[in-house]
Amino acid sequence: MERVVLVTGGSRGIGAATAKLAAQRGWSVAVNYASNASAADEVVQAVRAAGRRAIAVQADVADEAQVMRMFEAVDAQLGRVTDLVNNAGVVDQAQRVEDMSGERLQRMFGINVIGSILCAREAVRRMSTKRGGPGGAIVNLSSAASRLGAPGQYVDYAAAKGAIDAFTVGLAKEVAAEGIRVNAVRPGLIETEIHASGGIPDRVQKLAHQVPMARGGTAEEVAQAILWLMSPEASYTTMSLVDVSGGR
């Protein structure tokens, strides 16, 4: 059976690294993106160069109708998903809670939490052996921030990732007998573009001294953990929250 993985937020950073590594390991890949079509197309070309099928699918994961259309597009062009990487996520400008707007919070939880739950819902509908599916794996992207709280910078982001931790545990138990494994990876300080989108492009360099391994991680290092959780090697692993944080 062909393995088909949907990677949300797959056009850059950890998502792009995951899509490329999945192709090398034998998956066909659907690359979801919100707005940067050219970056998504570059990832698609890299997947095809590795000999696997690939498509780019635009969708805002916080929008239920767009999520449903995205899964239908994957069904039609690649086949039913066997694996999902819930990677799409956002941060915002560093800010104290007392200064955060309701609009910021709606966006933060809409994309980081509701989007992940909507995508998991659609994946379970296709994967569950109870529904005639083949089973599969879901890997959610949490963050070390769910443990650390991110005070003075991104408490809302940390809270959203705390919700992902709880969601991972609950969904894993809910579908464990239906052939679906659900785990999460919690990256620490990783060298990706997300820090610039939060207004601190050199955040990894500034905080590397707090990491016991004394450096930031790479998107590829996180992708390795994600691919292990998707693989048959992790066949008895579900409900796990795997820290990829250099000891922080």
Rank of each mutant, 00 (worst) to 15 (best):
R3H: 15
V4G: 01
V5W: 05
V5N: 09
L6C: 01
G10N: 07
R12L: 10
R12H: 13
R12M: 12
I14M: 00
A16K: 12
A16L: 02
A16F: 09
A16W: 06
T18R: 00
A19K: 02
K20A: 12
K20H: 08
L21V: 08
A22M: 01
A23T: 06
A23L: 05
G26R: 10
W27Y: 15
V29K: 00
A30D: 11
V31I: 12
N32W: 05
N32F: 08
Y33D: 03
A34Y: 14
A37Q: 14
S38I: 13
A39N: 04
V43S: 11
Q45L: 14
Q45H: 14
V47S: 10
G51T: 09
G51A: 09
R53V: 07
A54K: 06
I55G: 07
A59F: 04
D60R: 09
D60L: 09
D60G: 11
A62M: 05
D63M: 08
D63H: 12
E64C: 07
M70T: 10
A73I: 04
A73C: 11
A73V: 10
A76Y: 05
A76P: 03
A76I: 00
Q77D: 13
L78T: 04
G79H: 08
G79Q: 09
R80T: 15
V81A: 04
T82Y: 06
D83R: 11
D83K: 13
L84F: 09
N87I: 10
A88L: 13
A88V: 13
V90E: 07
D92F: 03
A94M: 14
D99R: 10
M100G: 00
S101W: 07
Q106F: 07
M108Q: 14
F109E: 02
N112T: 03
V113H: 02
I114A: 13
S116I: 04
I117Q: 13
C119W: 02
A120Q: 12
R121V: 00
V124M: 00
S128H: 12
T129E: 14
T129H: 12
T129G: 13
K130Q: 10
G132C: 04
P134C: 03
V139K: 06
S142Q: 09
A145L: 03
A145P: 03
L148A: 12
G149S: 08
A150C: 14
D156A: 06
A160G: 04
A160Q: 03
G162K: 02
G162R: 02
I164S: 11
D165Y: 03
F167N: 04
V169Y: 11
V169R: 13
G170N: 15
L171Q: 01
L171Y: 08
E178F: 07
N183Y: 06
N183M: 05
A184R: 03
R186L: 15
P187V: 06
P187A: 02
P187W: 05
L189G: 03
L189R: 02
I190A: 05
T192A: 03
E193H: 07
E193N: 07
E193F: 03
S197C: 09
G199T: 01
Q205Y: 08
L207F: 14
A208P: 03
A208G: 02
H209L: 11
Q210M: 15
P212N: 10
M213R: 12
M213G: 06
G216Q: 05
G217I: 01
E220Y: 11
E220Q: 15
V222R: 04
I226C: 10
I226H: 08
L227I: 13
L227N: 14
L227W: 11
W228C: 03
W228R: 01
T237E: 11
L241G: 02
R248C: 05
R248N: 12
